[in-house]
Computed example of a mutant assay.
Amino acid sequence: MPRNFTGLLAALGTVFGLCLTPLGLARAEALETPARQAVLIDLSTHTVLFEKAADERMTPSSMSKLMTVYLLFDKLAKGGVKMTDTFTVSEKAWRMTGSKMFVHVGDKVSVEDLLRGIIIQSGNDACVVVAEGMASTEDAFAAQMTARAKELGLKGSNFKDASGWPNPDHYMTARDLSVLAQRLIEDFPQYYPMFAELKFKYGNIEQGNRNPLLGAVPGADGLKTGHTEDGGYGLVGSAVRDGRRLILVVNGLTSMKERSQESSRIMEWGFREFQTYTMAKKGDTLAEAKVWQGDEEAVPLTVAEDARVTLRRVARAEMKVKVVYDGPVPAPIKAGDVIASLEITAPDMVTINLPLVAARDVERQGVVGRIFSSLRYLVSGDAS
């Protein structure tokens, strides 16, 4: 009968050098922040570098405008509207207070201008124009926002308006905002550069982008700030350097200055303290697994896709790696079958298990071969 085997990864230093460590947080000075909610993610490996109350319901303020933008981007991408199409400004939109694009009743405003009015100027009035233009009423549009949020996997979000106007039933989580930011970046690369624009002029009124990361943090290119009395000062930010993209969400800060300082500090910390490493490339042979009743005694193990991890730079010294599988693996085996995992551990870090697949086919032995294999196992315990 097959037995359980746990094989150490052979020639670890030769295969990976000093590049292997597990996902998670290594033993080091913990990051602290006055933000009530926060999350920092390395998008290249979907690694959470830091989080604080990331799943707590919070007032997202104008950061929830990102969902309004998402729905409009999606409509554009599917051909439902064009940048040159116009929506008409209602009295309700015109009467919106707070941050404004300064549209006027009866104006016919292009989709392109409205997008910049939301993204750059954080216009509450522009959000209402978009909501009414796409769904007749803002209430109907808010229902669409909530429905789409569920489709995107935003588990802690509910929308009651298009702008983030205070409402006790309008809420999101920091983690949901990070997922939404990721989807905006990945789903709409053709439109995403709007978030990096520094200023926009409409109706002879020029306003600057409120995002404090732009121009202050190298590689910063988005996304959105927010502020209400209940929510405090918040930001959804992103920056990319050397192929690494970080997404940051902070909320509940006490001032614009604190928001600017904290968001820059945490973003720089993420780039400085962590690094993303390629552990193995597709096709690399990492180890072998014993085979039960196959025409070969072992099958080489590899990764189906390039395997990358983001890790604390100080974690490598205490990293441990082993190959784990339930074996011998019964034949037949097809190339690409997941038959093992690469287990990576270190103190105070989350264990990561990467799937390992068969690098080639292994056919089953014929009847005679299977008989001899069974007899050998009965006599010697050798299941190969």
Rank of each mutant, 00 (worst) to 15 (best):
M1D: 07
N4V: 13
L8H: 12
A10F: 05
A10C: 05
A10D: 09
A11R: 10
L12G: 02
V15W: 06
E29C: 05
P34V: 00
Q37T: 11
L40F: 02
S44V: 02
T45K: 03
F50H: 15
E51M: 05
E51F: 09
R57I: 02
S61W: 03
S61I: 00
S61G: 05
S64E: 07
S64K: 07
K65Y: 06
L66D: 09
V69G: 02
L71V: 13
L72D: 12
A77G: 12
T84S: 02
A93T: 01
W94K: 12
R95N: 04
R95P: 04
M96V: 01
G98F: 06
H104T: 06
H104Q: 08
G106H: 10
G106A: 11
E112F: 03
L114N: 14
R116W: 07
Q121K: 11
D125F: 12
C127K: 05
V128Q: 02
V128G: 03
A131K: 06
A131L: 08
E132P: 11
G133I: 01
G133W: 07
A135S: 12
A135E: 04
A142E: 08
Q144L: 15
M145Q: 12
A149T: 06
K150V: 12
K160L: 08
S163F: 08
N167V: 08
H170K: 03
Y171P: 15
V179G: 01
L184E: 05
Q190T: 15
Y191T: 09
Y192E: 13
P193T: 00
E197T: 05
F200P: 15
G203L: 04
P212V: 01
G215T: 03
V217A: 06
V217R: 01
P218N: 02
L223V: 11
K224T: 06
T228D: 04
T228R: 01
D230L: 09
D230S: 05
S238G: 10
R241A: 07
G243N: 01
L246W: 14
V249W: 02
N251K: 09
G252Q: 03
L253C: 05
K257Y: 09
K257F: 01
Q261T: 10
S263V: 05
R265Q: 02
I266Q: 14
W269Y: 14
F271H: 11
F274Q: 09
A280K: 01
A280W: 00
K282F: 00
Q293E: 15
G294K: 12
D295H: 06
E296D: 14
E296R: 15
L301I: 13
T302H: 07
A304D: 02
V309M: 11
T310Q: 12
L311Y: 06
R313A: 05
R313F: 03
V314I: 14
A317K: 14
V321H: 00
P328Q: 08
A331V: 08
I333P: 14
K334A: 15
D337L: 05
D337S: 13
V338Y: 01
V338H: 01
I339K: 06
E343Q: 14
A346E: 10
T351L: 13
L354F: 09
P355C: 11
A358D: 04
A359E: 15
R360L: 03
R360W: 02
D361E: 07
V362K: 12
R364I: 12
R364Y: 06
R364C: 14
G366V: 08
F372N: 08
F372R: 15
S374A: 15
R376P: 11
Y377A: 08
Y377F: 10
